[in-house]
Every structure is written in structure tokens, then in C-alpha cells.
């Protein structure tokens, strides 16, 4: 009797342990299909690209036939003035679009952060550009920039002003303006959300302390929005380095190399110049840059969390 009871108790315990192990494994089992797809869809091409970047590889060859050249593709790129020009165009493009988008987006948010009738309507209008497909944006702006029949030059002519050679002499500027038009709303809505979650009474205290509207913005609003602005800016920067469609449709990188951003250069290297290895090396440089930015962003948010937690702990110790 006693024996049977004992053995059945042991059995039950074993069963329970088994069930528990199964329980612990469940989440991984659910994740497995996604993980497999990720591995195939993401890691395989990535590995393929890294592998290819060490070879002198022509599209007519399979990757196995291509000659292994070590780091040659990575090194020779720096002697190529076209690559350096393309990199510089990309950096200038990213710098200007992010700077202007931040200034205009935050400025608009500061201006429209008030409760007047019709304001929600206005806010909705402001975020429309962001929702248009990039190819459409490119086409739209190409027609507006058209030297003779485009909206801009016709308007300038109508006003009796000299016309501007938008997509010729000032191609980079024109492309930058189009990107600003499309992506300022992104900064705008995030800034507006940040503004509206600021502590209301701190702003009132600042008013009583004697801060003018500008001083409230400069000393209270902007510093308190800063974490949001940094993350938003980094997100935009990452995006700006990857921009392709709008420029492809508007200028195809020209005239000359004036708007040939890295993404375009990579595609041309692969298709026109038939140097897959070099294109892969270039992609990897871009990837490294984006990786650095992304890691920077994560590091920043993590640092903030840690700091907030530390502050909380020391406050609790005192009470």
C-alpha cells in the first residue's frame, strides 16, 4: 500500500517536471518558425554579400568561380574619386535634410501646440506628405521642378523673377527640398506628441518665474524634448542614408555625380559596371555606418533607462 503510494507520488513528480520543461520550451517553439525565416531571409543574403565582397566577381560568374581577392575591394574603393564623391553627396544630403527637418518640424510643433479650433485639421494636413509613396513624391517634384512647364519656374516667371535651373545646377538642393517636404511631418508629429506630454505645471512655473515665450522654449521645452528629438533625429539619419527612390525618379543621380547617393552608386556599380564584389563592399560600408547609428541610438535609450532607474533608486533610499 505504502509502496504504491510512494511510487505513484514519484511518478507524479516526474510527470510534473516533464510538463514544466515542456512549458519552458513552449515560447521557443512558437518562435522557431519566425527564427528560421529570419535566418533564411536576412542572414543568408547578408552572409552572401559579405562573402562576395572579398571577390572579384562578375555577374556572368557564379560566386564559386569568382577569384578571391581579400580586402582589395574595400581598399581600392578609397582611391576611387567617384566613390568618395558619392559618399560626400550622401553625407551632405543626410546632414542637410536631418538638420532642416529637425528645425522646421520642431518649429512647427512649437507653433501648433495650442488648442484653437481647426488645429487638429491643420495637424492632419501637415502629416499628409509622409503618407505618399516615395516614387509618387519623386514624380511630383520632377514635374514641379521642370525647367519650362514646372510649377516653380512658371510661378517665378509670372512674378517677373529669373527662373532657377532646379534639377540641373541646383540638383542636390532640389532633392534635399523634396525630402524635407516629405519627412518634416515625421519630426513634427513626434515633437508635437513630446510637447503635449510635457509637465504643464512646470511651464506655468516658468511663466511665473519670468520666462518669455522664447525662454520657455529654450530653457524648458527643448531640454525636456531632447530625448525624443535625439531618437527621432537618429531615425531620420538612418533613413536618409538609405534614400533611393525619390532621387532615382527625380535625377537618376545626375547631372554628373551631383546627386548620386551611395544607394544609387551601389546599384550602378552592380548593373552598369558589372562589379558585384565592389558593390558588395560598398554596401557593407553603408551597413557598418547604419549599424553604428542604430547601436548609438540603442545605447542612448538604454543609458536613459539606466539613469532613470538609478535616480528612482536613490530617491527611494532617502524616503
Amino acid at each position: 500500500m505504502v509502496d504504491m503510494a510512494l511510487s505513484s507520488a514519484a511518478e507524479r513528480a516526474a510527470k510534473r517536471r516533464k510538463a514544466q520543461r515542456l512549458n519552458r520550451l513552449t515560447p521557443y517553439m512558437f518562435m522557431a518558425p519566425a527564427a528560421v525565416i529570419m535566418a533564411i531571409a536576412l542572414l543568408y543574403p547578408l552572409a552572401y554579400m559579405i562573402w562576395g565582397s572579398f571577390r572579384a566577381w562578375d555577374p556572368s560568374q557564379t560566386i564559386g568561380e569568382a577569384e578571391f581577392v581579400g580586402l582589395k575591394n574595400y581598399v581600392t574603393l578609397w582611391d576611387d574619386p567617384n566613390f568618395r564623391e558619392s559618399l560626400s553627396v550622401t553625407l551632405r544630403f543626410a546632414f542637410f535634410v536631418v538638420t532642416f527637418e529637425l528645425v522646421i518640424g520642431v518649429g512647427l510643433a512649437l507653433l501648433l501646440d495650442r488648442n484653437i479650433r481647426g488645429m487638429s485639421m491643420l495637424r492632419t494636413l501637415f502629416i499628409l506628405p509622409m503618407m505618399i509613396a516615395p516614387v509618387v513624391v519623386g514624380l511630383m517634384w520632377r514635374y514641379m521642378y521642370h525647367p519650362t512647364v514646372g510649377t516653380f519656374n512658371r510661378t517665378l516667371e509670372g512674378l517677373g523673377l529669373p527662373t532657377v535651373d532646379w534639377l540641373g545646377q541646383h540638383a542636390l538642393m532640389s532633392v534635399i527640398i523634396a525630402d524635407i517636404w516629405q519627412w518634416t511631418p515625421f519630426i513634427f508629429i513626434l515633437s508635437l506628441a513630446a510637447l503635449q506630454s510635457l509637465p504643464r505645471s512646470a511651464l506655468e512655473a516658468a511663466k511665473i518665474d519670468g520666462a518669455t515665450t522664447w525662454q520657455q522654449i529654450w530653457y524648458i521645452k527643448l531640454p525636456l524634448m531632447m530625448p525624443v528629438l535625439i531618437v527621432t533625429g537618429l531615425l531620420r539619419l538612418i533613413d536618409a542614408f538609405k534614400v533611393l527612390e525619390v532621387i532615382l525618379v527625380m535625377t537618376e543621380g545626375g547631372p554628373g555625380l551631383s546627386t548620386e547617393i551611395l544607394a544609387l552608386r551601389i546599384s550602378r556599380t552592380a548593373t552598369e559596371f558589372r562589379e558585384l564584389g565592389v558593390a558588395a563592399a560598398m554596401s557593407n560600408y553603408l551597413l557598418l555606418l547604419l549599424l553604428a547609428l542604430t547601436l548609438g541610438m540603442f545605447a542612448f535609450t538604454r543609458w536613459q533607462e539606466v539613469r532613470a532607474a538609478k535616480v528612482r533608486i536613490s530617491a527611494e533610499e532617502d524616503t
Partner: peptide, 29 residues
């Protein structure tokens, strides 16, 4: 405007400036 009225106020939720330290909070005005 509030700043032209020569007054000081203490709020229920204290309304401190979270990004400034105590000395900076006190000396803001």
C-alpha cells in the same frame, strides 16, 4: 502677464524643472 505681476507660486505637484538640479531650479528666476 504672470511675469509682470511680481509673484511667486508653489504648485500642488511642485512643478519643478526635471532637467535642472536643485540649485538651478531655485535660481532659475
Amino acid at each position: 502677464e504672470p511675469k509682470e505681476r511680481d509673484l511667486a507660486m508653489v504648485f500642488q505637484d511642485y512643478a519643478l524643472y526635471p532637467h535642472m538640479n536643485v540649485a538651478q531650479n531655485i535660481s532659475f528666476a
